[in-house]
Simulated assay, not measured.
Amino acid sequence: MTQFNALIPAAGSGSRMGNTLPKQYLQLNNHPMIYHAIKTLCSNQTLSKVFVVLSPTDHDWYNYDWSEFSTKLTVLNCGGATRSESVRNGLLAMKQKNAVEPHDWILVHDAARPCLTTVQLDNLIEQVREDPVGGLLAVPVADTLKRGDAENRVIRTESRDNIWQAQTPQMFRHGLLAQALQQTAGEFVTDEASAIEAIGLCPKLVIGDSYNFKVTYSHDLALAELIIHKRSYA
């Protein structure tokens, strides 16, 4: 039987937040930010396991109580220097633990996207589970796009036709994703879909929600706090 598992690469430092504490542990609604992604994924009935890939030198994780997720959550201390390396190492560790088969689906989700909803997650799984390639949540770009030069002067306006902003989760078969990341090792790969595209395949775009944004700067954290707080009392 095909299984569905989630993987959260969380070995980065989040340096653009300007905080000494890694971004995934910044407080958000009385929990570390990564908690919210883990909770949404662990609460999903389709997902069998949730794997978190940490840096081998990460000691902050153990400052928090994760026992409520003990039946689904597995920590892998094999994070790399880049996102793609962390995901690649995580996929290998899952295979070495005999926790996955090549045909099993893997949903890779950012620790810094705490506002993912169950509805978005269910929609992705439903639309992609029979797809021969896999797919990802994304939103069509609505804003006007400007191409700038080295001096931050506009060179031209870019067409936004058929342009989408990629989100996560990104959902691909374990064997295919591991192959794609191995073949693109050392190349400029910013997400899992990029690796799949690089080997000649076309992932499916599933419409997401602008609330499923990535927390990158300090003001993003404040907005995420408002969204999660509102949902908690809805």
Rank of each mutant, 00 (worst) to 15 (best):
F188H: 15
Y233F: 00
Y64W: 15
R113Y: 04
C42T: 06
S84F: 13
M17D: 07
V215T: 09
T117W: 01
A166F: 06
L177G: 01
P102R: 03
L137W: 00
G14N: 14
N89W: 04
A198K: 13
L107W: 05
A10I: 03
V108S: 13
H174F: 02
H109P: 09
C42M: 05
S55L: 07
A234V: 02
Q45D: 06
K146L: 06
S55D: 04
E225C: 10
A222T: 12
L223S: 12
Q179C: 05
S70P: 05
I199F: 13
E192F: 11
L223K: 13
D209M: 05
T82D: 08
T74N: 08
H109C: 15
A150K: 07
H109A: 09
T117A: 06
N162S: 12
E101L: 10
Q127G: 00
I8V: 14
M94Y: 09
L28P: 00
H59L: 09
Y25H: 01
N212A: 07
Q120K: 06
V53H: 04
P140D: 04
V154C: 12
S232Q: 06
N29S: 05
S210P: 02
A37S: 08
N44Q: 12
W105K: 03
I228P: 03
A111C: 06
R88E: 15
I106D: 09
D191N: 15
R231P: 01
L176A: 11
H31Y: 04
I34C: 01
T74W: 12
E68W: 08
M1I: 10
C42Y: 13
N19S: 11
D209K: 03
L137K: 00
L124T: 01
L116Q: 04
A166N: 05
G175S: 10
V128Q: 00
F51M: 08
C42V: 02
L91A: 03
T144H: 08
W164A: 05
S159F: 09
Q183F: 13
E101F: 07
L201D: 01
Q182L: 15
S55K: 03
K49M: 06
E68C: 13
I106A: 13
Y25W: 00
A178L: 13
R156G: 00
A178H: 10
C202A: 11
Y64N: 15
T40I: 10
V128A: 00
A99Y: 05
K95H: 10
Y233N: 02
V108T: 09
H103P: 11
C202R: 11
V128R: 01
E85V: 15
V108K: 07
L26A: 00
T184L: 14
I207D: 05
V141M: 03
S86W: 14
F188A: 14
G14I: 14
A166W: 03
Q165N: 10
A198W: 15
T71W: 06
M17W: 01
G200D: 14
M94L: 12
V128F: 01
C42I: 01
